[in-house]
Design a protein around this nucleic acid. Sequence first.
DNA 1: ATACTCCATGGAGTCAACTCCAGGTCAAGA
DNA 2: TCTTGACCTGGAGTTGACTCCATGGAGTAT
Lengths: 130, 130
Amino acid sequence: MTIKEVSEKFGITQDTLRYYEKAGILPRIARTPGGARDYRPEDLNWVEHMVCLRRAGMPVESLVEYLRLTQLGDGTFPERLALLREQRENLLRQQEKLNEAMDRLDYKISRYQEAVKTGSLSWDHTEAEP
Amino acid sequence: MTIKEVSEKFGITQDTLRYYEKAGILPRIARTPGGARDYRPEDLNWVEHMVCLRRAGMPVESLVEYLRLTQLGDGTFPERLALLREQRENLLRQQEKLNEAMDRLDYKISRYQEAVKTGSLSWDHTEAEP
DNA sequence: ATACTCCATGGAGTCAACTCCAGGTCAAGA
DNA sequence: TCTTGACCTGGAGTTGACTCCATGGAGTAT
C-alpha cells in the first residue's frame, strides 16, 4: 500500500507518516525497488494503533519506547506492561479532567440557555464572572 | 491574595498566571499600591474556571473570546452559549478518542498480563506487532 | 523524449502554550 | 541603612508535534 493510500485511510498526512517513522513510532517500512514506501498489512495495524493512541494524546516519546520494547522481543513483556499501565493512568487522569470540564460547560450552558430565554442571569454563588 | 498563593492553590506557576492575564483569559487583576497583583475572590473563581477548562484542553484562544464576550455584558449571552456548545462538542470528540484508546490499552494490557504469566503471547489477528 | 504525478530526503519553519531570564521596584526585618 | 525575598515587565527561549519546502529520482502515459 502506498503512503498516499495509508494517509487517506487513516486521515493523516503523508508528512506525518514519514515523521512518525523517522521519530520511531512506526517500524522501518519496506520499500519498492524504486525506493517508495510499501506498507504491509502488519504495518497498517501498527499505524492504526499509533494513530489511535496519538489522537488520545499519548506522547510520541512513550510510543517510541513502546515500539522499541516490542522490537526487542518477548523478553520485554513486563516492561511493556508497565508502560501501558502508566499510560492508562494518564488517560484516566485526562478523562477525569475532561469530565470535570464537561460538567462545568454543561452547567454554564444550562445557565445561559435560561438567561437567553428570560433575558437575564440570576445571581449564583458558583458563578465566576469577573 | 498574592500570586504565589494563587499559584499554589491551583497548582500552576506564577508565570502561567501572568501569561493567562496577558493572553486575555483572566481579567486585569487589581494591584496593591506597590504594583503587585492582588487576586480578589471573584478572580479566584474565574481562575479556577479557566484552569479547569485549560486542563481539559480547551484552547486559550477560545477562552480569550469567552472572557471578551463576558466582559461585553449580558447582550452576548447567545454568543457565549454558542461558543460553549461548540467547545462541548470538542470535549465530546476528545472523550470518544480517549475511550477508544483506553479500550486498546486495556486489551493490550490484558494480553500482556497473560503473556507475562504464561511466558508467551498467542497469536491473534487483532495484534499489531510490527 | 517529454510531461506528469507520486514519492524520497534533509532541514527549516510554524504553532500553541508555556517557561525562563535580566534588570528593576517595593516592603519588611536586623 | 542594608539586605532579603517576593513581585514586576518585556522579551527571548523551549517543547512537542507536526508541516512545509527545495531538490531530485521513478514510473507511466503521450
